[in-house]
Every structure is written in C-alpha cells, then in structure tokens.
Nucleic acid binder design. Structure first.
Length: 260
DNA sequence: GCGACAG
DNA sequence: ATCTTGTCGC
C-alpha cells in the first residue's frame, strides 16, 4: 500500500523545527479513537489462533513491523498474519540519513517502513509498530506517523517509556495481564492527565527474583488506548512481545544477515 | 542550568 | 538499534 497523505512522508532533510511542525500536523490528523473495519475481539493470534469462527476473508489481517540496522542502512520487515497464520512477508532496505534522536525516530526509520509497505500486496486491518504512538512529546510517535500517512489503524508497542507519567508508580513486578495508565504531563502536548497509553504486562514469571518489564502500548491512529491494549493482548502468544512483532523482528534479522 | 529521552 | 559467551535462574 502507498501513502494516502504524501505530505506526511518523513523527510530526513528537514530541520528539527520543520520535523516538529510536521509532527504537530500529524497529531492533529490522528484519530485516537476506534475507527476500525473489524471487531477487535476477532483478533486471534498466539494462543487464540485457529479458534476462528469467521471465514478467512472475514478475519482481520494484522501486520507486525520491525527494523534492523547495518552500517547506514535500515532493513524494515513486515509480516502479515490472519488468524495466527503468516500470509505474507516483505522487506525493504533504505539508507538512514540521520542518527537516532529521541522524539524524531520516524524521520530515521520511516522511509524504510513505507518502502516495505509499498511491497506489501495484502491490505492490513491493523499495524503493530515497534515504538511509541501517542506516548510522544507531540503525540506523533512512529506508530502515529506511519498510521496517519497510510491512513491505516496502528498501535505502538515500546519496550521503554519515552515520556508521560504512570498513574501509579510501576512496581518492580507487575502481574501478567496488569495495566497501568500512562498520562500526559507537562512534556506532552495533550492536556495533563490525558490517557496517552498503558504499561501492559504481557507476560510474567510465576515466581522468583527475576521479573519481566511491561510493554508500553499506545494508540497510533484510528484506535483508542484501551482497544490498543486489548488487541495487543490478543496478539501475544506466550512471549513478552506480540507475535506479529516477534516475527517481523526475526525477519528483519534474517534480511540483515543476507546483506552482510 | 539540570534531567530525561522509543529504536 | 548494535557489539557478543557464557551463564544465572526457573
């Protein structure tokens, strides 16, 4: 698929000010409420896979998106799943123009991701992107940028919190399935207290001294914070990361190995 | 000025 | 994200 909003395609040659201005425009175009063409409860990946009661073409197509890097090149990988089964895999390699800058990640990785989407033949119902969505200084993280540019429902899944404040302190050990609201604070453009995402414990050990950290889930586009977590939970299959992300991560590593 | 900061 | 073997714990 191709950009529906070409004016939002990330241009790494922009000045920092221009990048931030574009993010403000993207945030205004973003929809942080459910506007999905499928029923979230029909997402059955991981442990729910195969228990589908819908016909194939009624099951939502979920794509996982992840990147790997080699020198000054970014490898973007997309894995499309329907009812827990891989139906398509694509990769794309693009040169990276700028270094990693907190808050401007989409300008570093965005073009590789969009190039991969151009190679994708199926039309996804939802994208699970590695990184933040609305949990971002200007409410325009990678998942939001990609989602709005393609007008594709998207959720952001990050392993660390970029900004925002947990409604209650995150304990050393969260219980599996537990959720803690992440609210906007003075560093986020949204009014203080706005729910911009959730800390979500997708997996946890039964006991012991070691524990797994939660995921930070936030809406990217056309989905609410609550539904974003619901669908991510339905995408998990016994591991910390949702299955679409794990598969895309592995595919990106394999594609990277082919480059070396 | 200080601290904080997805991948 | 990436560089990397063994190793501690379940």
């Amino acid at each position: 698929m191709n950009p529906v909003r070409p004016e939002f395609v990330p241009d790494p040659s922009l000045s920092r000010e221009q990048m931030e201005a574009l993010q403000h425009d993207i945030a205004e175009a973003a929809v942080f409420a459910d506007d999905l063409d499928f029923d979230p409860t029909d997402v059955r990946i991981g442990r729910h896979a195969g228990q589908q009661t819908l016909t194939d073409d009624e099951s939502p197509v979920i794509v996982g998106v992840d990147q790997a890097f080699l020198d000054d090149r970014a490898v973007s990988a997309i894995v499309a799943l329907r009812d827990g089964e891989v139906i398509e895999e694509v990769t794309a390699v693009e040169p990276v123009e700028i270094p990693y800058i907190p808050g401007l990640l989409s300008f570093r990785e965005g073009n590789a991701i969009l190039a991969a989407f151009e190679r994708l033949s199926v039309t996804p119902d939802l994208a699970v992107v590695d990184g933040s969505g609305r949990i971002h200084f200007r409410e325009a993280g990678l998942a939001t940028h990609i989602g709005v540019t393609l007008d594709l429902p998207a959720v952001g899944v990050a392993k660390n919190l970029l900004c925002g404040t947990p409604a209650r302190s995150i304990p050393d050990r969260m219980l599996e399935g537990e959720r803690i609201v992440i609210e906007a604070d003075s560093e986020v453009t949204a009014p203080d207290g706005t729910v911009v995402g959730y800390a979500f414990q997708s997996r946890q050990y039964d006991s012991g001294s070691t524990s797994i950290n939660p995921l930070y889930v936030s809406p990217g586009h056309r989905i609410s914070a609550e539904t974003a977590v619901d669908v991510v939970e339905r995408c998990c299959g016994g591991y910390k990361l949702p299955e679409p992300t794990r598969l895309a991560d592995r595919l990106a590593d394999e594609a990277k190995a082919e480059l070396a």
